[in-house]
Design a protein around this nucleic acid. Structure first.
Lengths: 366, 366
DNA sequence: TTGTATGCGTTATCAT
DNA sequence: ATGATAACGCATACAA
């Protein structure tokens, strides 16, 4: 068998061939410092001839910059994170940065492991969808160590880091308001709502109606529930807890189960609001299985726009988050910090679009 | 209070605190070489106290291994690559590897740029969906330099690298055979079919029918067209070129246009076969816009399974590629090579499933 | 403008 | 089993 020798070409060998010192060769190949045009050409020629490729590890070790940003996504397989990632990668590439990707599955233990790996790999900055927005010592520690952190989708409370989110509460409130406006009084909601640090479900309702909870301190699904409650309050409608399908974990199966429960209720809701893509797909499956027609049997609005929502007949109205924009914004923010730009933490809140597609109609007179 | 040092803690400082040499400290912290239990504990304790974190750059510089694999995907935003990437990331994580992700948009120039960056970052191996399966000097050069390469979805001809694909031709042939079996005679196909190196479209047809082309040397969409032709030949059906919608570039818009053309043909096809997810979504939009019913007006089979295909009514029958499995397999292969395992290049061809969902019916008597 | 020498943080090679 | 020291490939004071 042929021996595979990586035949590593270093600056020293290029320098020798060009008849200059390693410092000079380094200056022209690395693009720093000055050198005569004549020398430049000679060095470049030698590098070309030998097939020289810079070792970014060595460069990073001395400069302290790896030109790499680390990303902790929940699950790259989901269209949500995939789109965000695309935005991040585009901006990173345009700036000559690489992107190290990890999945947390929204689990803190995975996230800790991921952040540790990324930091040991000396990433210049971190873009992360934090799993725990209350206690995240690893992120505080990153900030303290001078490693820029940009949070996406949700923000850790009291963490002095930039964030890119959308106004979930307002978007959700508007959706519910639309449903109420056309006459719906019993509106079901399916949402993750995994944990709320400050009490139980009833407590949350109370806090929302009393305005004693800061929406910024909540996970998106809670913010969307917040908007749901607000719309009800604004319309003077009572809140029926049984209409809220709390999935509890990020699971399609449980989402189907909860949707099924809602749609089998003695007094079935006349409209449904799903709080994210996974819930929407699960709900849609159940709706199809129960053979319900949209919008005559049931009105539907979904948070997050999935491709099938536009070509179903009728189309499904949805809140469209600017996902790649969010990824791009996050990347720009982290690159700016890496570039040394200071200032207060930026809390970027983008505004989602509403795609009106005809899945909403007045409730049937029963 | 917790005392954390924003300063960079190196092995030297841990060694000093523990009262040992940097070599000893390195041995215990790096997990190589021998040392007394007593010393181990002392060093670990000091490391913990100082908040020591290894610098993987420095380690990689000397060991020549970065514990990182580079991935060149076409577009991480597509469910296809997103799922593959998930598989790759899972296996990588389980082995303590990081994953550097880039997008090529299926363009060779982007791919060259990406591979160069990844190699300069000293990745230990490469997983790539090659843009050009005929000429890929950068991949040959990687192999020659001892950088393991695993191709995914398609394979560069004459490149001594592992690959993970599916048997596109057989899967496609079976789909078309199913349609023919229930009575279809005019079956439309929408596929990318961007370029074929060896001649024009007619030439391709001739080569397929003469069996003078190696399917392994084709892009997936051409392989699927191959299967389409084979099924026709096996059934003794003539081939009508106008029934093949050749999109030419990977574009939803052109795909819609071609689907529209097919479905507006004077003698409309009674069945449609779409060659990938993008084509399927585009076709579905057109089908919905034209208000065609599946399967009474048109039978439909799609290559690649998208989530909406299972909850549409009726469901859409589809070829289900084992995407995360492919990603996992690719990662395992590249890790094995990195681990020094030799042997002939592996050409792994997984078998896709067929999800039968009821979008196929006999053609209507017209 | 160019060269010399040193250091980045770690592992590898020797001694002891 | 441990320690001194030399790499790894590059960038950067500083000297020339």
């Amino acid at each position: 068998m042929a021996d595979k020798r990586p035949d590593k070409i270093t600056i020293a060998e290029v320098a020798k061939l060009a008849g200059v010192s390693t410092a000079t060769a380094g200056r022209v190949l690395g693009g720093y410092g000055y050198s005569r045009q004549e020398i430049k050409e000679k060095v470049r020629e030698s590098a070309e001839k030998l097939g020289y490729r810079p070792n970014l590890l060595a460069r990073g070790l001395i400069t302290g910059k790896t030109m790499t940003i680390g990303v902790v996504a929940g699950d790259i397989q989901s269209p949500f994170y995939a789109s965000i990632m695309r935005g991040v990668a585009d901006i990173a590439r345009a700036s000559g940065f690489g992107v190290l990707l990890t999945n947390s599955d929204e689990r803190l233990d995975r996230e800790l492991e991921a952040v540790q790996l990324l930091r040991e790999k000396q990433v210049d900055g971190l873009i992360i969808a934090p799993s725990d927005i209350v206690r995240s010592p690893h992120l505080h520690s990153a900030i303290k160590d001078g490693c820029p952190v940009v949070m996406i989708d949700r923000a850790v409370v009291n963490l002095a880091a930039d964030s890119v989110t959308v106004d979930n509460r307002a978007a959700s409130r508007e959706c519910i308001a639309r449903l109420i406006a056309v006459g719906h009084r019993r509106i079901g909601m399916v949402a993750e709502l995994e944990r709320w640090e400050h009490g139980d479900f009833d407590e949350f309702i109370r806090c929302v109606l009393d305005d004693t909870v800061d929406p910024a301190s909540l996970f998106p699904s809670w913010q969307r529930l917040f908007g749901y409650f607000e719309a009800h309050r604004d319309a003077g409608l009572p809140i029926d807890k049984t209409l809220v399908g709390r999935v509890g974990v990020y699971s399609a199966e449980v989402a189907r189960k909860e949707t099924h429960r809602l749609l089998q209720l003695p007094e079935r809701p006349t409209a449904l609001f799903t709080a994210d893509g996974l819930m929407s797909a699960a709900a849609m499956e159940v709706i199809a299985a129960l053979d319900l027609s949209i919008p005559s049997d049931l009105s539907l609005i979904c948070f997050d726009d999935l491709d099938w929502m536009s070509f179903l007949k009728p189309g499904i109205s949805a809140v469209v988050q600017p996902l790649t924009d969010m990824g791009e914004a996050a990347a720009r923010l982290v690159l700016a910090r890496i570039n040394g730009e200071g200032g207060e933490p930026q809390r970027l809140a983008l505004t989602p679009e509403f795609a009106d597609r005809g899945s909403v109609a007045p409730p049937r007179i029963s």
